[in-house]
Amino acid sequence: MLVLSRRVGESVVIGDDVTLTVLEVRGDVVRIGIDAPRSVRINRAELVQEVAEANADAASPSPAAVASLTSLAEALKNRPAGS
């Protein structure tokens, strides 16, 4: 990881078309402006993590859902013929 020190008004250029500018520092909060083409996706890291976790949860059935499906499968398997 590259670590840089910047003051308010100073920028960092990434590649040919992304510029990060320090807009304000207030206590332990830093406001950053990002100038990038619309084709560049910009997301806060915590949101990316939250979406990844939600997707993983949605892809994995809960134990209750597995038990319900197992119970349904057993009931269908044991039903009388012709029902």
Results as ranks from 00 to 15, higher is better:
Ile42Met: 05
Ile42Ser: 02
Ala54Gln: 15
Val48Pro: 02
Asp16Gln: 08
Thr70Pro: 01
Glu53Ala: 09
Val40His: 02
Leu72Tyr: 13
Asn43Arg: 12
Arg26Ile: 11
Ala67Glu: 12
Val30Asp: 09
Arg38Trp: 14
Val25His: 04
Leu72Trp: 10
Asp35Ala: 10
Val48Tyr: 00
Glu50Arg: 15
Thr70Ile: 02
Ala75Thr: 01
Arg26Pro: 01
Thr21Ile: 07
Val30His: 09
Leu47Cys: 12
Ala56His: 01
Ala59Gln: 04
Ser71Trp: 02
Val30Tyr: 08
Ser39Trp: 03
Arg44Ile: 08
Arg44Gly: 07
Pro63Ile: 01
Pro37Ile: 04
Leu23Asn: 07
Ala64Ile: 06
Val51Tyr: 11
Arg44Ala: 10
Arg38Lys: 12
Arg26Lys: 06
Ile32Leu: 15
Asp16Met: 09
Val66Asn: 02
Arg31Met: 14
Val22Thr: 10
Ala45Phe: 02
Gly27Pro: 12
Val30Phe: 09
Gly33Tyr: 05
Ala59Met: 03
Ala64His: 04
Val30Lys: 10
Gly27Cys: 12
Glu46Cys: 09
Val25Gly: 07
Gly33Asn: 00
Asp35Lys: 04
Ser62Tyr: 03
Ala59Phe: 03
Glu46Ser: 14
Glu24Asn: 12
Glu53Ile: 04
Val29Arg: 15
Val29Gln: 15
Leu23Phe: 03
Leu72Gly: 08
Glu50Asn: 13
Val29Pro: 11
Arg26Glu: 11
Glu46Pro: 04
Asp16Asn: 13
Val66Gln: 06
Val25Ser: 04
Arg44Lys: 11
Ala73Trp: 00
Asn43Trp: 06
Ser68Ala: 14
Ser60Val: 07
Ala59Asp: 03
Gln49Tyr: 11
Thr70Phe: 00
Gln49Pro: 00
Ala36Asp: 01
Val18Phe: 07
Asn43Pro: 00
Val18Glu: 03
Asn55Lys: 06
Ser62Phe: 07
Asn55Thr: 11
Glu74Asn: 08
Val22Arg: 08
Ala67Phe: 10
Arg26Met: 12
Ala65Asn: 11
Asn43Gly: 07
Ile34Lys: 05
Val30Pro: 09
Asn43Cys: 05
Ala54Phe: 12
Glu74Lys: 11
Ser68His: 14
Ala73Cys: 02
Val48His: 00
Ala75Glu: 09
Ala59Ser: 11
Asp57Glu: 15
Leu72Thr: 14
Val66Met: 04
Ile34Val: 13
Gly27Gln: 12
Ala56Asn: 03
Asp57Gln: 14
Val48Lys: 10
Ala67Gly: 07
Ala56Met: 03
Leu23Arg: 13
Val18Lys: 07
Thr21Met: 12
Leu23Tyr: 01
Val51Leu: 13
Val29Asn: 13
Gly33Gln: 04
Pro37Ala: 06
Arg26Thr: 15
Asp57Ile: 04
Arg31Gly: 03
